[in-house]
Design a protein around this nucleic acid. Structure first.
Length: 236
DNA sequence: AGGCAGGTTCTTA
DNA sequence: TAAGAACCTGCC
């Protein structure tokens, strides 16, 4: 979206945003999903579920960010078989290569926005490979062309049911079950989507004996997934 | 030094 | 339908 904000913790439960109050309320308040009552979701965790009880305590400030579908599609295609530092690096390389510079009022470049489909489409397959994307380069090359040509519409996804959207996203080569769920959750705010990656797999097998009660969280399982993911990684 | 990493596709039965 | 190999590359 070609916007950047810097947030500083200034006290307990107190944060300072670098933007104006107008921008905070018109943009970031929604982006960080600050209008949603997460206490309601958390209240659905059974008191005898000690893992999730601890997780919602430790991960108290977690929010599902309302991110851009296109950015999520490409970012999560990149994420497969990569660790987090490598993902960040690849996304930053792409942004610096063909994203829009975001400047402060005095002209200083603060960050680069994620490249638009058109901007990415100007990169050749070789260009993409040079961004250390490995075998994902051709997935991204193909997805970019599908979107730019209109053959694949992310916008159309907004009107679809969760089930339709999942099927739609799975048509993109390089998008499987996990990536589709991530794009749904973070790019379309489908908080019922429940992405299962290796960390969630580990939590389910280690803490729930391979059987997680998903049915307790119908319609917002993605929020619960975030607590599981966050705390699961801390615990190792 | 090599296995492994926020998976997916392709191949084989 | 299901299990197993191959896939790129950089990090730990």
């Amino acid at each position: 979206m070609n916007k950047v904000v810097f947030i500083e913790k200034t006290g307990e439960g107190e944060y300072e945003f670098s933007c104006s109050p107008e921008e905070f309320f018109s943009l970031w308040h929604d982006y960080f999903d600050l209008g949603t009552d997460y206490d309601y979701f958390r209240s659905k965790v059974p008191s005898n579920d000690s893992f999730l009880q601890e997780a919602i305590k430790v991960g108290g400030g977690i929010r599902i960010l309302k991110q851009d579908p296109w950015e999520m599609l490409i970012t999560f295609i990149i994420s497969q078989r990569k660790n987090i530092p490598a993902i960040i690096k690849a996304v930053e390389t792409l942004s610096q290569l063909c994203g829009t510079p975001i400047k402060s009022s005095d002209g200083q470049i603060l960050a680069y926005g994620f490249p638009s489909p058109e901007a990415l489409s100007r990169l050749s397959l070789e260009d993409l490979t040079a961004c250390s994307l490995g075998y994902r380069a051709k997935y991204i090359y193909q997805a970019t062309r599908a979107v730019v040509s209109g053959e694949f519409s992310l916008e159309a996804g907004r009107e679809m049911s969760d089930e339709q959207l999942k099927t739609h996203l799975l048509k993109v080569t390089g998008v499987g079950e996990k990536v589709a769920n991530c794009v749904m959750l973070f790019g379309f705010y489908r908080i019922g989507a429940f992405p299962v990656d290796v960390w969630i797999d580990r939590v389910i097998s280690n803490e729930y004996n391979g059987n997680f009660p998903l049915e307790l969280y119908q319609g917002f399982a993605g929020v619960i997934q975030q607590y599981m993911f966050y705390y699961g990684r801390i615990k190792g």
